[in-house]
Structure formats: C-alpha cells, structure tokens
Amino acid sequence: MAYRYAVAGLGLALMGLGGALLVQQPSPWRIALWLAGAVVVHDGLVAPLVIAVAALTGAFGLRLRGVPRAALIVAGSLTAIALPPLLRPGGTANPTVVPLDYLRNWLLTMAAVALAAGLYAGTRAALRGARRRT
C-alpha cells in the first residue's frame, strides 16, 4: 500500500512540475491546445480504431491476447508517432528537421516488432512444449 502512495505522490509531483513549466512558457496556450489535440486524437481516432480492430478480430474468431495484442498496440503507437512525417513527405527548408527516410525506418520498425513478437511467442510455445514432454 505504501508503494501505491509513493507512486501516486511522485505522479502528482511530476504533474505539478509539468504544469509549472507549462505556465512559464512564452505561449502556454499553444502547448495546452496541442495537448488537448492529443487527447482528442486519442479519444476520437486511436481508441475507436483499437476497439474496431478488436471487434473485427473477434467477429472472425481470432482471439488476440498476450503477445499479438501487445505487438498490435506497439505497432499502432509507433504508427501514430510516425504519421506526420509519413503523410507529409518531402523536403523542408531546414534539412535537419527530418533527415531520415521515415517510410523505410517505419517499415523496419514494424518488421522488428513483428519479429520480436514472433520470436517471443515461438520461444514461449517451445518452452511450453518442452515442459509438457518432461
């Protein structure tokens, strides 16, 4: 119980620090507007998409639990982060703004997530099978 109070206290302290830093910014309303936009995008776009994917997979008899669910959540989060540069490719006036090939790196990251999930699930299945045989 003490652990919960300590974590809650730390969270409240960090929220207070974030609020104080927000107020000290030259234009705190722009940052607050951006944060509100993030909440709207999450609640209006990301959460309904996750629910729709869960409903569709359930309708087709697929039960996504554990590793596949975690891999989809990670892939969706990484895609949400990468969407702005993916949707607006092209040069900028400042070449250091987006100096990398976002599409290639996003595809490599998705492949890494799929590979890690597959290796984890395969290793777990192999260990389970080994335990049954012994």
Rank of each mutant, 00 (worst) to 15 (best):
A13S: 11
G61N: 07
I73G: 09
I31W: 04
G76F: 13
G118A: 06
L10Y: 07
L62S: 12
L22P: 00
M15L: 15
I81T: 07
L45P: 01
L33A: 12
G66A: 07
G44F: 01
A32I: 01
T123Q: 06
A38I: 04
V53N: 10
P68A: 10
P84M: 02
V113C: 04
I31S: 07
L64M: 08
T96W: 11
L78E: 09
G16Q: 14
A36P: 02
G37L: 07
P95K: 00
V67Q: 02
P99K: 02
L78C: 09
T134N: 15
L107H: 05
P99L: 01
G16F: 03
V113I: 09
R104Q: 12
M15E: 15
R69G: 10
V113H: 01
P26T: 12
L56A: 09
V50A: 15
G11F: 15
G11Q: 14
R88L: 05
R4T: 12
L64A: 04
A125M: 10
V23C: 03
M15F: 15
G11K: 14
R69T: 12
R88E: 03
A82W: 03
L49P: 10
A36W: 02
I51M: 13
A8V: 15
V7D: 14
G66I: 06
D101H: 05
L86P: 08
L107C: 11
T92M: 14
P26Y: 12
Y120E: 13
L72Q: 01
L14R: 12
A121V: 02
V41C: 12
I31G: 02
Y120K: 03
A93V: 13
V46I: 15
A130M: 09
A54G: 06
A36F: 05
G37P: 00
V7R: 02
A111L: 05
S27I: 09
R63V: 03
L108M: 12
T57K: 14
R4M: 08
P28R: 11
L22S: 01
L56D: 01
D43E: 15
A82F: 08
L115G: 13
G90M: 04
A114W: 01
T123I: 11
V98A: 05
L14H: 13
Y120L: 11
A70I: 11
A82E: 02
A112W: 05
A52H: 07
T79E: 09
L100Y: 14
L87E: 01
G118N: 04
F60R: 15
L86M: 04
A126K: 07
L108Y: 06
A47M: 15
G90D: 01
A93C: 09
T57V: 04
N94C: 10
G37E: 08
V23A: 10
R65G: 07
L87H: 04
L119G: 00
Y120A: 10
A55M: 08
